[in-house]
Design a protein around this nucleic acid. Structure first.
Lengths: 227, 227
DNA sequence: CAAATTTGTTCGCTAAGCCTAACATTTGAG
DNA sequence: CTCAAATGTTAGGCTTAGCGAACAAATTTG
């Protein structure tokens, strides 16, 4: 019962756990039923039912109207799913020549179908990568996520020169837009200014030197570290 | 309705169609409900229901107690699934270093999850292969299966020297046994004798030169051509 | 702080895929 | 050619994962 592999969970359960974990990866506030419903594309009643079932299996703790928290077992499954997702994305880009903005949806489906053996073989073939094409850390086979530091571009002080560490892969259309602009993990840029009430952040990128204006959703999706 | 991609079918429907097609790939007799049930690991009643639904969708023709035949639309979907399966097997062996006897079950799951885009990229990466690791022909993207000639080893005349064209991938354990014996697609051998009532076929293989006795199930699983 | 709004839960229903049990048809052995 | 055995079908139930409607709780607002 303790050693149940993640592949024994239903795809729906895998999605729930991964989403709960992902929600707390970059912000501390616990996720809510309605946010989960919106992200999963289902109704809140469906999520409410699902959470109750996960609680019955000991994968989350949840009292009615209370907060949703992963148990240790639930977290282990969630991290295993995140590892699958990020290794798949890396594999699709590095081995099959996908663009880094095209891999999210494909990985979303495949992560429910691949075996642990296949994941291990991809990991080996890729040389045990630690970051996926969006810059997100790939948890190890032992389940330890290697958290990189970083802040959202929207919170970076004006005047600083920074490197992009990660770009949220939640919105493929936004990723395509970033690609057009030449913004990708490891791109360096200087934060020129934040214009508060317009919610616009201006950055300067080199080669070719240019200024780019980013709205709030864009500058929240990009995470940077000082260089 | 006509251009529905194979990915719109349920996994169960995909399995049914592929099995019906596969059953007639190497023998002309139409498949029966009970054989399908046994191969799919479900009860005959389940298959009977499923066939009825496929008939309703115009993918097979079937009157109660009558024979089961693919329509053109059903055949197109079936061939698309076979293409997926065989390309996946080839990819797992050639790119990820799987043994040719380990890939069947993995492909069986993945074939329901991969997108057409992924299949095309794998096909390109592999250089548009025409045979899978077991020697089975890989249908083209246009759906035309390239049928190779060949007969079952059990039916090959004694004294002939032949090359293995294909080995049925139905039984992974048998494949592992063949690997131990050094029997694989393209292996050459000479049929020494058939002993009819013992149902044993003896063959001689070179490098290292040795004689191998094969029972009926084994010599039915191996297909050969004269060289 | 009361009322209105938002958020979460429960309940009854649906569809797919599977099951068993009962029944119908076909096959093939004597 | 008959009838028992084998094969196929139907009917009724179960589980999962969805839904909408009705209701309960919590939060926000006036």
């Amino acid at each position: 019962m303790d050693v149940m592999p993640v592949s024994d969970l239903s795809p729906a359960a895998q999605d729930y756990l991964k989403l709960i974990w992902s929600a707390t990866e970059w912000s501390p506030a616990p996720i809510t039923v309605s946010v989960m419903a919106e992200r999963l594309g289902v109704r809140p009643s469906t999520v409410s039912d699902g959470i109750k079932k996960l609680a019955g299996q000991g994968l989350v703790t949840h009292a009615p109207y209370g907060s949703i928290e992963l148990t240790d077992a639930g977290r282990a499954h969630a991290v295993a799913m995140v590892r699958r997702h990020r290794l798949l994305e890396t594999f699709l880009v590095d081995v099959l020549g996908y663009g880094w903005d095209e891999v999210h949806d494909e990985a979303e489906v495949l992560e429910h179908a691949v075996s642990d053996t296949l994941i291990d073989r991809m990991d080996r073939k890729l040389g045990h990568p630690t970051r996926d094409p969006h810059g997100d850390p790939i948890p190890g086979a032992d389940g330890r996520p290697s958290m990189p530091k970083g802040t959202q571009l929207s919170a970076a002080a004006a005047g600083n020169t920074v490197a992009i560490t990660r770009i949220s892969d939640a919105d493929p259309q936004m990723l395509r837009y970033f690609t057009e602009l030449g913004l990708a993990p490891d791109t360096r840029l200087t934060v020129t200014e934040h214009r508060p009430y317009a919610d616009v952040t201006t950055v300067r990128v080199h080669e070719p030197e240019r200024d780019i204006d980013l709205g709030a959703s864009a500058s929240d999706a990009i995470w940077v570290v000082a260089v």
